[in-house]
Design a protein around this nucleic acid. Structure first.
Lengths: 175, 175
DNA sequence: CAGAAAAGTTGGCTTTACCAACGTTGGATC
DNA sequence: GATCCAACGTTGGTAAAGCCAACTTTTCTG
């Protein structure tokens, strides 16, 4: 016959009569098919990542894309918008607007490349470097919150595994 | 750490000059800050996951959420929409529309619960079960494509690590 | 020199997740 | 029993992210 519909109709108190993963609402764990699907695990974890990092950045008046662009400019020096987009995985059109925002905030300077007048040369400013320091500190704290249940070794493992998947996929379809 | 499996994939050691990860456009690798940031790795990997699984499902006229809902109904029996949403991590409002779609396609039946007239009882149909079989096969193939560069052990490791993070985060803020 | 390709910009589209409100219903409390 | 509160389903709307198409200007290639 059918299992009882909604065995627990008050989600505030768990009856604790079945082995459910910690944290999930009582008797309402996700289906095994999802629980064991790498794609689902990745997507749901990415959702939490979005939320945690996004809130942390919003708290200091920053946006998620700031980090990648500014870090790119520091590590590789002045770049064109197209190059920034390829490095960080952004569409050209999105980079244009992002640079608008960063330039308006004074974190970045946009000048035309005299040797190739199609290109803009994007340079980080002193204010941008200071901003980046706050960003990295904020990101570090938020990420620690994200992967809190993992040990240092496990965090390294996770990064290594994801990096391998990412390298492979980038080779198949550059993003 | 393990010896390099595929090609040179050692992102932790930058030689500074010409050591570019495989697959990345020539000399336009992402900044180290992103490369080593779990949040960035998770988000970018999730993007590829979205694309690969989404395309695979679109090829058989299905959508991503079909799997979770139908698998839930098979594993736990007829459920209310709210319960389905909690299990799969969907908003109530989104579940309503998803069930509309699944019901119109004949994969699911929606009846009012006589014992609680607020609730709908969602039941999977025979067509839905057949659909779910195709979905799981498609999902398996797509996921294999996603984590192709990982060995079986590594895939298990990845799933375990992500599951731990997810359990922890669900405990902090149920989704 | 002609054509292809790259760069930047504008504008728009889709998906996904989320939120707010409402009416209905049931349970809890006094 | 009357009242308050919570859950459910539904509608509608919002915001961000990623992506695509078109167009102009400029450079590279054959």
């Amino acid at each position: 016959m059918q299992p009882p519909l909604d065995a627990c109709s008050d989600p505030t108190r768990g009856l604790g009569l079945s082995a459910v993963e910690p944290g999930w609402p009582s008797n309402e764990a996700p289906p095994t098919l999802l629980r064991t699907a790498p794609s689902w695990l990745i997507n749901k974890t990415a959702l939490y990542s979005h939320r945690i990092i996004g809130e942390a950045f919003a708290a200091i008046g920053a946006r998620r894309f700031h980090v990648g662009l500014l870090a790119s400019l520091v590590e590789f020096g002045p770049s064109s918008q197209a190059s920034l987009g390829r490095r960080c995985g952004f569409d050209r059109s999105d980079v244009a607007e992002m640079i608008n925002e960063l330039a308006e905030a004074g974190h970045v300077e946009r000048t035309q490349d005299p040797s190739d007048r199609r290109r803009n040369i994007i340079q980080i400013t002193d204010a941008g470097r200071i901003h980046l320091e706050r960003l990295t500190a904020t990101l570090d704290a938020a990420q620690q919150e994200l992967v809190a249940p993992l040990s240092a070794d496990e965090r390294a493992d996770l990064a290594r595994l994801l990096g391998r998947v990412l390298d492979y996929q980038v080779g198949r379809h550059p993003l």
